[in-house]
Design a protein around this nucleic acid. Sequence first.
DNA 1: GAAAATAATAGTACTGTATTATTTTCTTAT
DNA 2: ATAAGAAAATAATACAGTACTATTATTTTC
Lengths: 201, 201
Amino acid sequence: MTRHADPDTRRLQIAEALLRTLAERGLGGTTLADVAAAADVSVGLVQRYFRTKDELLIFGIEYVYQRATDRLHRVEIAPPVRDVVVRLMETFLPLDETRERELRVWLNFLTASLTSERMAAIHRAATGELIDGITDALTAAQRTGEPDDDLDPRAEATALVAFVDGLCLHHAATGDGYDIPAIRAALATYAGRLFGRRAGA
Amino acid sequence: MTRHADPDTRRLQIAEALLRTLAERGLGGTTLADVAAAADVSVGLVQRYFRTKDELLIFGIEYVYQRATDRLHRVEIAPPVRDVVVRLMETFLPLDETRERELRVWLNFLTASLTSERMAAIHRAATGELIDGITDALTAAQRTGEPDDDLDPRAEATALVAFVDGLCLHHAATGDGYDIPAIRAALATYAGRLFGRRAGA
DNA sequence: GAAAATAATAGTACTGTATTATTTTCTTAT
DNA sequence: ATAAGAAAATAATACAGTACTATTATTTTC
């Protein structure tokens, strides 16, 4: 990579190399040299675009959340709300290699946020916005009488997010029993109960 | 700590110091010196009882899973099954400081297992046994006609474990909206739907 | 007196950071 | 169109800090 590119592109290229490296070696096993090698770039270049390793990591986590947010915003919002909610949550599933990687990276950052207030804040903000969005969707659905009568939209939104994250977590760490079809089926079942599948049985 | 103790006790003492340190500083921020200090012991002593740091960490994760297993085995198994399942899952909730610590440690080990086959194997084994147990409970409940008619016990068990782990994960990392009462309420709601709360509304 | 634990030290390896000289690439002005 | 100069990227090196491991002598405890 000896071609000049504009600064923003370079930062993105390096960030993507970071994500690849993080997914493969974990946060504790990732060095600047690793990232530079993955980006096919010299270590000095990484240093030029990111003053410190911390700055690179912060940029990396924000990049991951940005991509997740972009996916969310591309979701079609045509009713019924039940399907909208399912589609929203499915954007988080590791349905392709990219998201599989991002899941692993996310888990690393999440664990890091236990000891880094800086990262914790980023994570909290993103999670909060997500839950707000789901809450709004559930509230809207209630007005159309779609979901169960007396459910607490915010509580259900937080529970749903926890459920999906739990599924993803086990997919990444456990494997067995948490393959993609199983996860989608579990999500469908969950949504069915949440919105009351009285029509069925 | 200058009193002699039998080897097993010493290893346990050091392991507990490890857990305290891990919960506080994370896996990446924990050094042998930290552990020794937390155990009020010299670094040389840690080295005597654990040849390498890796050996200490493996012992630590096994210790955590052992404690979780012990808690599971102390759960009362009096029907209805619905309550048994809830009680089983509640043993994983961070209901006291010890489990709060263990949750953080567990998250660190879980993330580490993404890049360590050794740790991944330990995690998979423990998760597998747990899911087997829940599956058995659900199957037994089906014979008594307690839960819904046509549910897949194994799929439901894996989903339930994912749900609880997701709740714990967000409690540790996110905080907001995932306090203990909220988690218990979410679990109760989930169990209610799983076992069919037709009696209520 | 034997075993356990401490204390001090040394060595090796790795990593983040900083610096510098050199080469390559792009742009611009002639 | 091309040559000169600016900017970007490389390469090599140095440095300081840290951590794991190993070793040894000394002290404490049983």
